[in-house]
Design a protein around this nucleic acid. Structure first.
Lengths: 130, 130, 130, 130
DNA sequence: GTGGTCTAGACCACC
DNA sequence: GTGGTCTAGACCACG
């Protein structure tokens, strides 16, 4: 059974995180083209979130053509979605890392220090994988 | 002469970016304990921003004990501020990088792919330094 | 029904008095953890004060972790807040009394005279309770 | 030699504290009618304070008839000043204590708790006199 | 509906 | 000159 939930500290809007989770589920193959995603009502109950918030996430997903409406049934993962999401996922990851590094540079920290932090955090994340 | 200005795309509030710039200036030694920071009016003129917005940033800096008020004169960098800001700066950088890596992991990307991206972006940032 | 209002003569800023009233309401149990505090707009209307002034008070309360934001809903009293506020209230009272006594001593008044004033004012305040 | 200096934490304006110190010196007999008070320049240097600030304090003292100008010489303590200051001193002390007690009552603390604090702080101030 | 941000401009106390 | 407070009103994101 699919389980979506909000992770800890994160100041991004809830609807964006919900949409992202769906995309990542598609990207990793947990959800495949043709699969129905959870109904707004179900997901909102499961996540203890206002239904409007889930609806907003789903609206965004429709606009991005990640999901298609099926009359009287629900929303299904669109045909091209898997590939789109895989690309998207990688691009998102890359963008965030790029931004983090760029910001680090702008603080006038020594490049060697930044590199040390990068190595450090990478190995650390290997040691205690989520 | 000190030059503060708002960088390009950044969705954080203006006052937060102003406060951060001051902190980084202190961290890097451009501003030292005892120095007066630019007056609200000067800085607001220089940055083309409402004086209240600068005032808000300065108020936050006071609460964090980064600056001290000198009645009728202005705000001066507090005594312990340099060290505090250096630590702060490093902590901020570290946190952002950690968050970026952690999110990358949560997307179920292959670790080797993440590592590749890290390397790639790091060298890329060296090639075209800020 | 909760009633907040500005008391008579007091040269402290309005936002500080608003924040203090909230704290005291929490300390005395009128507001309990999980309760929503009045909305910025409601309270500003009730107190005949600019909404920004109330917002400023609420922002301070957030920084002190007395209240937590619930996105799109309002601000609720934080979990640990009751105890914090009780301590705070007592500390405030104690500090003010200590300061008053200390200043009395510094004026080179006879200790017996100070003590007499203390007794006098205490009984007087009992006679005509607020 | 007379020594005036600013005490620690106190958010009242500097000029008010200077004026108060002069008054208390008169009340306690350290300064007597006819005595010259320090010149603006001397006192400002001694207290490491802007001369304007001392001048402001002296202006207030003149308006209250605590000191009289002596042409080409300076300011001297006025004739009736000693008695005025003694009364003033007591009134100030009394007012502050009254205000402290009144505020304590408004916080909805138990009267017994307030009384305990009063006793406690009074004995404490006896134990470690300034 | 909620709070958050920003602008504009007035007034004040202090030095 | 300095910062601090307050008002008025606009706009935005979120639920």
């Amino acid at each position: 059974m699919l389980l979506f939930q909000l992770q800890g500290s994160d100041d991004r809007p809830i609807y964006a995180r919900i949409a992202e989770q769906i995309k990542f589920a598609v990207a990793s193959g947990v959800l495949r083209p043709g699969d129905l995603i959870p109904s707004v009502r179900d997901l909102s109950r499961q996540m203890v979130v206002n239904p409007n918030t889930v609806a907003r996430a789903y609206r965004d997903l429709q606009q991005e053509k990640i999901v298609d409406p099926v009359r009287g049934t629900g929303l299904q993962v669109a045909q091209g979605a898997a590939e789109v999401c895989r690309d998207l996922r990688k691009a998102i990851v890359r963008d965030r890392i790029r931004a983090a590094i760029q910001e680090a540079r702008q603080t006038a920290l020594e490049p060697t220090e930044i590199e040390a932090i990068l190595r450090d955090e990478w190995t650390r994340s290997n040691g205690a994988p989520h």
